[in-house]
Simulated assay, not measured.
Amino acid sequence: MGAAFFPEVTVNGEVVPQALIAAEAQNHPAPREKPGLAWRAAARALAVRALLLQEARRRGLVAEPEALGAGLHETEEEALIRALVEAEAAAPTEGEIHAAWARDPSRFRSAPLWEVSHILCACDPQDEAARAAAQARAQALAARLSAEPGAFAGLAAKESDCGSRSAGGALGQLGPGDTVPEFEAALRRLAEGELTAEPVLTRHGWHLIRLDAQAEGRELPFEVVRPRLAEALEKAAWARAARDLVARLVAAAEVRGVDGLSVSSGSDEAAPRPSASN
């Protein structure tokens, strides 16, 4: 559907070029049979962007584009919008940062560590016959271990398809993210010394997992948590300021050719958030 099928978009009398809307529409997924949805989303986003730029220029703001990393820099318009939202967003105070931590210090802990052993019956999970055969083998091993838990290391040495068989199935210390999600999810349900009741399927095959020992993460002091918490509060303040600013500008604006313009219509895209270094 060509641009001629859509109305001209104006923001306080300023025309948003249809070529610009067409280019922006590429960033708004929509069903192929409904290209108008992408066009309208792009028009709303660019209308909000125009409102923010108009306000930045009305205030006489000047901003130098900042580096975004990996050789990328803000455009001049992005820098102006950042400066506008920075003028609206109040940085969190030390008292607010400390209060956010003090509400529940137990939320801030170091990662747990697990000592883990396993027996792997390898297969390609996409191969139905191989998956079933490996599962049957793993279930037979689980039955043997149920009757003789002390045989784990010996069975791992003889039966496991993982290189850890040379260590009786021991994988050593693991932390969050060190294994595939299915393995970690099963591991988190185990008590110390417990073996999974049923084999666990991952992309590598079927596992019998034993949690040999665990060290719970320790509660972190405020001094360690503060930088991360301050950054989170700053980003939340930035998002609130952008939403509130857009709401005020939309309420006072004369926008034509755009339906459903609201606080959520592009404010996130139009107002870049602060980086960790801000």
Rank of each mutant, 00 (worst) to 15 (best):
I97D: 10
S265H: 01
L113V: 10
T202G: 11
C123S: 04
A67C: 05
A170M: 12
V180A: 09
S160E: 10
L51S: 09
A91K: 08
D178H: 12
E182L: 11
R137G: 07
A153C: 08
R203M: 02
R137H: 14
G71D: 03
S160N: 05
V15D: 05
S262L: 06
A89L: 00
R32I: 12
R226A: 15
R82D: 03
V85G: 08
L201S: 01
R188Y: 11
D104H: 05
E219R: 14
A241E: 03
A91I: 02
R189L: 10
E77C: 07
L195R: 14
A239L: 08
D104F: 12
E14K: 14
L211T: 06
P199L: 02
A87W: 02
E216M: 10
E24W: 00
E159A: 12
A87M: 05
E24K: 13
W206M: 06
P227E: 04
A111D: 14
E184D: 09
E66R: 12
P65A: 04
A197T: 12
V15E: 09
L187Q: 05
R273H: 14
A130P: 00
G60A: 01
E234N: 13
L120R: 10
R248G: 13
G2A: 07
A22W: 15
R59V: 06
Q214A: 11
G71T: 03
T75D: 12
P272A: 06
A23F: 13
L174E: 05
E198V: 03
V11P: 13
P31C: 00
A140I: 00
D161S: 02
Q18K: 10
R210W: 00
P17L: 06
A91H: 08
A213L: 02
L46T: 01
P7A: 04
A167S: 11
V246M: 04
V16L: 05
L245P: 09
G193Q: 03
G172Y: 04
A42C: 02
W206R: 05
W101P: 14
P125C: 02
A270Y: 02
G217Y: 07
G95P: 09
E33G: 11
E94P: 11
N278I: 13
C162D: 15
P17Q: 00
